[in-house]
């Protein structure tokens, strides 16, 4: 059960452990902040200089999102790690979590009522924080970023082993994290400015169309008979059977749907015929109202 979830927890946790181990072994791989597109943009506006050495990492992350999809969100991001460990996504999962799905029901298209990732909201957040960073001359979002707070807590612990003086951040950082992830549940889909960059990369990706992604074998899919397992398991509530290209932009390739699909109808194969039929430009008709 939930093999994929445990695998995701394992990989994201391994990254945290690796970063912590590197702090002890003095290998300077840095935290994920060394790959952050938002951090890059903030430094540019806050300092008026271009941090060239950040660029390769940032471009690499965006290239990975373009080629593989938003894998960062479900497999790497410490935020998802916390959500996977402690729950906290509204309608999610067959077991353990609520297990219900808002738009489900025979004859209904779950994707119609789905709350989508809001590139517009994330974009507004990004613009505001760049303006604010420009005014106050420091990267503001780094103080609030849940990824930074997870690593901040980690490094506060490693600092404690050197100075033997615990800091307030050991309490304050986790408290802010709880607020962001478990109270503001729309953090990832509507606030996270990193999601704006990933959303753009995913948009570009969906225009190419043939890149690997979650696809459904129409022959074995039981959606027409009322099966909504993929929607119920999907963290983004995507119904794989009826998903348009716009819906698949929100897919983080967590593979929960693939694991739970009762008829094994979900594949990763680049299927030109299906992708062609599924491509559409309904992005203008943003149903997130």
């Amino acid at each position: 059960m939930n093999r994929m979830r445990y695998l995701r927890i394992g990989i994201a946790a391994a990254i945290l452990v690796a970063v912590f181990a590197c702090a002890i072994a003095h290998v300077s791989i840095g935290t994920l902040c060394a790959l952050c597109p938002v951090g890059f943009a903030e430094i540019v506006v806050a300092s008026g200089s271009l941090p060239w050495e950040l660029l390769p990492g940032v471009v690499a992350v965006l290239a990975v999102v373009f080629l593989l999809g938003r894998v960062f969100c479900s497999w790497v991001c410490p935020t998802s790690l916390l959500k996977n460990v402690f729950g906290g996504k509204t309608p999610r999962g067959l077991t353990g979590r609520s297990g219900s799905c808002a738009g489900c029901g025979l004859g209904a298209d779950p994707n119609e009522g789905r709350i989508r990732n809001s590139l517009a909201a994330q974009g507004i957040v990004l613009v505001v924080l760049l303006v604010v960073s420009f005014i106050v001359h420091f990267p503001v979002f780094c103080l609030l970023c849940p990824i930074g707070l997870v690593f901040g807590t980690l490094f506060a612990v490693s600092r404690m082993f050197v100075t033997w003086q615990p800091g307030w951040e050991l309490i304050v950082f986790p408290a802010i994290l709880v607020l962001e992830l478990f109270v503001l549940r729309r953090w990832c889909s509507a606030i996270c400015p990193l999601g704006f960059f990933f959303g753009l990369a995913a948009k570009a990706r969906s225009r190419v169309g043939f890149l690997p992604g979650v696809r459904v074998r129409a022959a074995s899919c039981k959606h027409a008979e009322g099966c909504d397992v993929c929607t119920a398991t999907c963290p983004e509530n995507i119904c794989a059977a009826t998903a348009t290209a716009r819906d698949m932009e929100d897919c983080t390739l967590c593979f929960d749907c693939r694991e739970h699909c009762p008829s094994s109808a979900i594949t990763m194969k680049p299927d030109f015929a299906t992708s062609k039929a599924k491509r559409s430009v309904d992005c203008s008709d943003d149903r997130d109202h």
């Binding site: 970063v19 590197c22 702090a23 003095h26 290998v27 300077s28 791989i29 840095g30 935290t31 902040c33 060394a34 952050c36 951090g39 890059f40 903030e42 430094i43 806050a46 300092s47 200089s49 941090p51 950040l54 001359h137 420091f138 990267p139 780094c142 930074g148 690593f151 901040g152 490094f155 506060a156 490693s158 600092r159 050197v162 100075t163 003086q165 800091g167 307030w168 951040e169 304050v172 950082f173």
Partner: peptide
């Protein structure tokens, strides 16, 4: 203005001298 707290310097310091500032 330039530091994004990636903590690479903290990891790199062979003598555990460089530490992240506490809150």
């Amino acid at each position: 203005a330039k530091c994004d707290r990636c903590e690479r310097c903290v990891q790199a310091c062979p003598y555990d001298l460089v530490q992240p500032r506490p809150l």
